[in-house]
Amino acid sequence: MKLGIAGTGKVVAEFLPLVAELEHIEVTAINSTPRSAHIAKELQASYGIEEVYSNYIQFLEEADIDTVYVAVINNLHYDFVKDALQHGKHVICEKPFTMSHKELLDLEQLALDYDLVLAEAIPNQFLANYEKIIELLPQLGEIKLIECSFCKYSSRYDALLAGNVLPAFDAKSGGGALMDLNIYNIHFVLGLMGCPNEVNYFPNLEKGIDTSGVLVLGYENAKAVCTASKASNKPNRSIIQGTKGTIVVNGSTGRIEFFDFMLNDGTTAHYALNVHPHKLYAEFSTIASWIDEDDTTYAEEHLAHSLTVMDVVDRAIQSAGLATGPFSEQKIF
Rank of each mutant, 00 (worst) to 15 (best):
K2S: 09
I5S: 00
H24Y: 10
H24S: 15
E26K: 11
T28S: 12
N31V: 02
N31G: 04
N31D: 06
S32A: 13
A40I: 10
L43M: 15
A45I: 09
A45F: 06
G48T: 06
N55P: 04
Y56Q: 04
E62A: 04
V68G: 01
Y69T: 08
L76F: 15
F80N: 07
V81N: 01
Q86W: 04
Q86F: 08
G88T: 04
K89C: 04
F97H: 09
T98W: 06
D106E: 15
E108F: 12
A111G: 02
L112K: 07
D113P: 05
Y114P: 02
L116I: 02
L118K: 00
A128K: 02
A128M: 10
E131V: 08
Q139H: 10
L140I: 01
L145S: 04
S149A: 03
K152H: 11
K152S: 12
R156I: 10
Y157A: 05
A159Y: 13
L160H: 03
L160V: 08
G163F: 07
N164D: 10
V165F: 03
K172G: 08
S173C: 06
G176W: 00
G176T: 06
Y184L: 06
N185Q: 02
N185I: 00
G194C: 07
P196D: 05
N197Y: 05
N200V: 06
Y201F: 14
L205C: 13
K207A: 12
D210C: 14
V216C: 09
Y219I: 06
V225W: 00
R237W: 05
S238H: 00
G242M: 01
I247Q: 01
N250T: 13
S252A: 15
G254T: 13
E257D: 15
F259Y: 13
M262D: 12
M262I: 13
N264L: 11
N264C: 03
D265Y: 01
D265H: 02
L273T: 09
N274P: 09
Y281L: 08
S285F: 04
T286P: 02
E293R: 12
D294L: 11
Y298A: 12
Y298S: 10
E300W: 01
H302L: 07
S306F: 02
V309H: 03
M310W: 07
V313H: 05
V313Q: 01
R315Y: 05
I317Q: 03
Q318R: 15
S319Y: 00
L322I: 12
F333P: 10
